[in-house]
Structures are given as structure tokens and as C-alpha cells.
Design a protein around this nucleic acid. Structure first.
Lengths: 119, 119
DNA sequence: TTATTATTTTAGCAGTTGCGCATATATTAA
DNA sequence: TTAATATATGCGCAACTGCTAAAATAATAA
């Protein structure tokens, strides 16, 4: 066991490996982004919403009806997905149609869904 | 606009599409699983832990040191990842070595990291 | 045995999240 | 104009999360 560097009080088992591994870590912003994107999918209702949008665009009240939540709740979920650029909106009359923003989201979502099915 | 079925008070725009889309939804358990798995990655410290374990196994105190959190916090994160079968543990003396559970996790994590980098 | 050490667990707390409810905004119809 | 409607937004609350601090476990050393 070796002493820690700096003022950190944590003792480490393998100082060299610890430092080498720390250097392989991407910058914090990457992990923040990663966590933000995953948190969008970390709610089953939002995951359902994305699933509904895989092959079509839908208005808020239809999304709410399909998923089984209030229109207010749907709207709030859609705002979160919109902020993370996972969906886009198109206004037609007094209705707002939502769709997936890009193939990016679609691909990641489908891959993850496969993983969940196999689990 | 058509009336809703059952006692639901939500009005829907396209009843047929709503019902058809609802039928394409996988069962709730799938979305629960999906959300659980994503929530594991929805924390930047847990994401860092997984990154550290991509190419090697590490003990708790080294993980804590690399990520920059307390050993208690690391242990709690590892318990979450263990519950979700994303990591496995191996005891050696009084130290516990953690490693990724399977290629499954590795693949999903790497793909997601790529997506985050591009964002 | 007792002391030390690596990890785990528990309790408590501040911060966050998802939802219901009420209200606000925007568009259309009368 | 007023009324109705689709969505958005602000507020409050219960539930959840991640952390620290302290205590508990488990394994080794003295």
C-alpha cells in the first residue's frame, strides 16, 4: 500500500495503475453529457414515449393516451426530451407533433431495448 | 377527434393509430428493466467507474481514488451496479475486486460513450 | 486475544424528480 | 368579441438519489 499524493487521504493499492487509469478517463463534460442522456431514458414513461416515436410522429394527447399518463405529464416529459435534443416538434394548428430528432437516438434506443429484452 | 374507450377521459386525435401504437409497445417489465439499466448509467460517477473497469479489475479503494469519491460512496455505487448485474466481485484477502460482468455491458457502454463524444 | 484495515451498511440530510393540479398561452370556432 | 381546445408552465408534494458520517463486518497482523 502506498501513501496518497497531495492532501487526499485515500490509500491506494496500486499507485501506478491508479494514475494510469485516471489518465484514460475522458474529461468530466463527457460523463456529464453521458449521464444526462441516460437519465432521459432512465424513466419508463419517457422510454415508452420514445418507443412510440420510433416509426411516426405523434401529438401530445395521443402520446399521453398511448402511454397512459396525463397530457401535462406527457408535455413535461417531452420538454425534457426536447431539451436534450432527442425529439423535435412541429406545430400544426393548435396541436404539437413530436418526432425523434435523429437516427442517433433511434439507434441507441433500439440497441438498448435489445439488451433489456435479453436480460 | 374521437371519444376515448373505457373510462379514460383523454381525447385522442387518431384512435386507430393510438391503439395500433399501443399494441406495438413491449410489456411494462421491459420498460422497467430498460429504465433501471439506464439509471445505472445516469450518474456520472457510476459512468466513470464503469469506464475504469473497461480493461481491468480494480479494488474499491482504487476505484474511489481514481474517480475522486469516498470509499463509502464507491461501495454504494458498486452495490447498485452489482444489483443490476453490470459488475461482478472477487474477494482476495480483505479486498474486493470488481470487474465488468460481461461484454454486453462493455459494448453498450462503449457505444453510448461514442454517442456522448459526438454530441 | 486485540488492533488494524478494506469494505459494507445504516441513518440522516439536501437536492432532484415525476406527477397532479391550477393557471397561462395560443389557436380555432362561433 | 367570447368560448372551446391543445399544449405549456408554475407550484407543491411525495418519493427517490447520492452523499457524509458513523457503526458494523470481515480478514489480517501483532
Amino acid at each position: 500500500m502506498s501513501k496518497p499524493k497531495d492532501k487526499c487521504e485515500i490509500w491506494v493499492v496500486d499507485q501506478d495503475r491508479v494514475e494510469a487509469t485516471r489518465r484514460t478517463l475522458p474529461p468530466d463534460e463527457i460523463f456529464t453529457l453521458l449521464a444526462e442522456n441516460f437519465s432521459a431514458l432512465a424513466d419508463s414513461n419517457r422510454a415508452k414515449i420514445l418507443h412510440c416515436l420510433l416509426e411516426q410522429e405523434l401529438c401530445v394527447c395521443d402520446i399521453a393516451s398511448i402511454v397512459g399518463i396525463s397530457e401535462s405529464a406527457a408535455s413535461q416529459h417531452l420538454r425534457i426530451l426536447r431539451t436534450l435534443r432527442m425529439v423535435t416538434q412541429r406545430k400544426q394548428g393548435r396541436m404539437m407533433y413530436y418526432s425523434l430528432n435523429d437516427e442517433h437516438v433511434k439507434t441507441l434506443f433500439k440497441i438498448s431495448l435489445e439488451h433489456a429484452r435479453q436480460a
